[in-house]
């Protein structure tokens, strides 16, 4: 009698999920394969550490002797980021309203969504290369590239925010006989405004970072200076640029936080 397992008094609370277990096993196997395939041996890692030590030694101390060049690049990056964000927000608003499936019929949302997907398909640096070829070197190409990226991301985030609103509030405004644009202004925008501000400040932050990048392909900003310094092995100037970029991003963070605080009514 005692050899027989005791009968369960209740059904099992945690049923094993074999498909999920299998997925974890497959993932672990792939990680092991990738690691061996790329020959990431401890010896390779130690060699890398040696390179890193030399590089760090050349970086410090940072050299701010050419601060005028540095400041000019930073100013240009900041201006590009702010302009591209403003343009991106202005374009994203109508596009996201058109793309919201709870407000618009399918034949309107489909092209608007396609536009946003295309804008989001490529990294800003790739878009910047295209614009450098199209409109020539300089800040204009950078602004256009960042604007395209902004429309792609802000459009998507705005659209999702609009699709999550309470339609009851919209219904009440519609019931007053309000024309469509008034329904948008009174029923839709008040519900999403706070989130729009949050998304827009996030995009400004992203544009600040990206505006220091697109210069590498000649689209203006501090990135061009950074790339040139790298190519000349001018590592202490590289360090100065990197420190300045970090300062710029922190300043941007403080700026966007205060923008959010102003609008948090």
């Amino acid at each position: 009698m005692s050899a027989a397992p005791p009968a369960l008094a209740h059904p099992r609370a945690f049923v094993p999920n074999w498909p999920v277990r299998l997925a974890w096993i497959v993932l672990a196997l792939y990680l092991a394969y990738a690691l061996s395939h790329l020959e990431l041996t401890p010896a390779r890692f130690l060699a890398g550490l040696e390179f890193g030590r030399n590089f760090l030694a050349k970086l410090f101390p940072p050299d701010f002797a050419r601060w005028e060049l540095l400041l000019k690049g930073l100013k240009e990056s900041l201006e590009m980021a702010v302009l591209a964000s403003a343009l991106g927000i202005a374009l994203s608003l109508p596009v996201s309203l058109l793309a919201a499936r709870n407000l618009m019929p399918g034949w309107v949302t489909w092209p608007a969504r396609m536009l946003m997907v295309v804008c989001r398909s490529f990294h800003p640096v790739i878009v910047a290369i295209v614009f450098v070829k199209a409109v020539g070197f300089g800040a204009l190409a950078g602004i256009l590239a960042l604007t395209v990226a902004s429309v792609g991301f802000l459009g998507k985030l705005f659209t999702e925010a609009i699709e999550e609103i309470s339609l009851k509030q919209v219904e009440a405004v519609r019931a007053t006989g309000a024309p469509f644009m008034s329904v948008i202004a009174y029923g839709v925008l008040p519900q999403v405004f706070a989130r729009f501000i949050g998304f827009a400040s996030y995009e400004l932050d992203a544009n600040l970072r990206n505006s220091t990048m697109v210069g590498i392909v000649g689209a203006g900003g501090i990135g061009g200076t950074l790339f040139a310094a790298f190519q000349r092995f001018d590592y202490d100037f590289v360090c100065a640029i990197i420190v300045s970029i970090i300062a710029l991003i922190i300043a941007g963070e403080i700026l966007t936080n205060s923008v959010k605080r102003v609008f948090r009514a």
Binding site: Q169, P179, P190, F193, A194
Partner: peptide, 27 residues
Amino acid sequence: YNLVERLTVIENVLSGRLGYVSPFKAW
């Protein structure tokens, strides 16, 4: 109730007139 939550009380009451006011002026 279906009030527009983030608008003020007076804005909600006045939204009853939206059918008579142009969208631009309403905005």
